[in-house]
């Protein structure tokens, strides 16, 4: 039924979120994600849903907090400097166990950096980012098609585990136009939302809080959160594996995975045995498959648009069983298939 059409990454993501039942969007302009906020400003009103251009990213994430408290599928999007401002709100949402979606269309950093696509916010995304012991569920789309489909998954995982989710993409993918299919999006929601605040009619009043001052209460809450994170780790590691039998396995997500894919095709034409492990979740990190691959492949090459961040998680998973190499370019520069093949020759 559906036909292919050309769509820009940012817009596909916005439409995917709308199809997934996003009830409230709050955003603040920043390049390279402006098309997303602009798209939402039109489409959310057309759909009779909530759209606000907030006064800052701080306000936007706290509006998400509020809409989530009220039971909405709520979302915000930004790029690196703006996502830094959202960390406070994300920590509170994690502490209060509120679902919600944050999109980071990464650009070069640190500081104001530049507006080129980048993957330099990996640590911030997967290690917590704000204060306290917590994790976000972090999804990494690799095409315009996946940008369209992943908001639904992000919302549903976020609601299932009652913890905020992030879509970690980059300025190149988000600006890219490619054919995509507006497939039907599953919008089923967990109906048991016995924690939202919508007025206490017919029930006891509820409170939402992360402040736990009673003796031992915060430690118990942290234990509960860690149990939840462990459950997510066992159940939700997602990835795509190309050329399982490869001798050298590239590991990359998002835009760098696409460059890797081109490199693999070129190399394999010449008889080399290259494969690609593409994490679709970087938290939880697909460590189980990496542990299995570590027993089969000769070496890993991690490719990122940064100075080497995800490579640390690969090394942790591989645990010294196989050599792990890294190639990356920081500061908004992009790797090329040729550069990757040159690195492979060195191994």
């Amino acid at each position: 039924m559906t036909t292919k059409r050309l769509m820009k990454g940012n817009e596909a993501l916005g439409e995917g979120a709308i199809q997934a039942g996003c009830g409230a969007y709050f955003g603040y302009p920043i390049t390279p994600q402006n098309e997303l906020t602009e798209y939402m400003s039109r489409r959310m009103l057309e759909e009779n849903r909530v759209f606000i251009q907030s006064e800052s990213e701080l306000a936007a994430i706290n509006m998400v907090f509020g809409a989530s408290v009220a039971g909405a599928r709520a979302m915000t999007s930004s790029s690196s400097p703006g996502v830094s401002l959202k960390q406070e709100g994300l920590s509170y949402m994690a502490g209060c166990e509120l679902p919600g979606l944050v999109v980071n269309v990464q650009r070069g950093g640190p500081g104001l950096g530049n507006i080129s696509g980048s993957q330099a916010d990996y640590f911030q995304a997967v290690k917590g980012g704000g204060h306290g012991d917590y994790h976000l569920i972090v999804l990494t789309p690799g095409s315009v098609q996946e940008l369209y489909e992943m908001p639904a998954l992000a919302f549903s995982l976020s609601e299932k585990y009652r913890t905020p989710a992030m879509i970690l993409t980059d300025g190149i993918l988000a600006q890219m136009q490619e054919p995509m299919e507006a497939v039907k999006i599953d919008t089923t929601r967990d109906e048991n939302r016995d924690w939202i605040l919508d007025g206490c009619k017919g029930r006891a009043p509820r409170k939402i809080r992360s402040l736990l001052m009673e003796e031992g209460a915060l430690e118990a809450h942290n234990r509960h959160l860690q149990d939840k994170y462990n459950l997510i780790k066992t159940q939700e590691q997602r990835y795509q594996l190309i050329n399982e039998q490869a001798e050298i396995m590239l590991v990359a997500y998002g835009i760098s995975a696409r460059v890797c894919y081109t490199a693999i095709q070129e190399a394999n034409k010449k008889g080399a045995k290259l494969g690609l492990l593409r994490p679709l979740t970087v938290w939880p990190f697909p460590e189980k498959i990496l542990q299995e691959l570590a027993l089969k492949v000769k070496a890993f090459l991690v490719v990122e648009l940064n100075a080497g961040q995800m490579v640390e998680d690969v090394k942790l998973a591989v645990n010294g069983k196989t050599p792990v190499h890294f190639y990356g370019r920081a500061g908004g520069a992009c790797v090329t298939p040729g550069e990757i093949l040159k690195e492979i020759e060195k191994i």
């Binding site: 409230a24 701080l58 509006m63 907090f65 509020g66 009220a70 709100g89 409170k207």
Partner: peptide
């Protein structure tokens, strides 16, 4: 208070209130 109440981070209650009120 004996009705629904949420916390908000320091200074952000108006943004949280905005999110709640616009949705409900």
């Amino acid at each position: 208070w004996n009705f629904d109440v949420t916390e908000a981070s320091h200074g952000r209650p108006p943004a949280v209130a905005t999110g709640i009120k616009r949705f409900l």
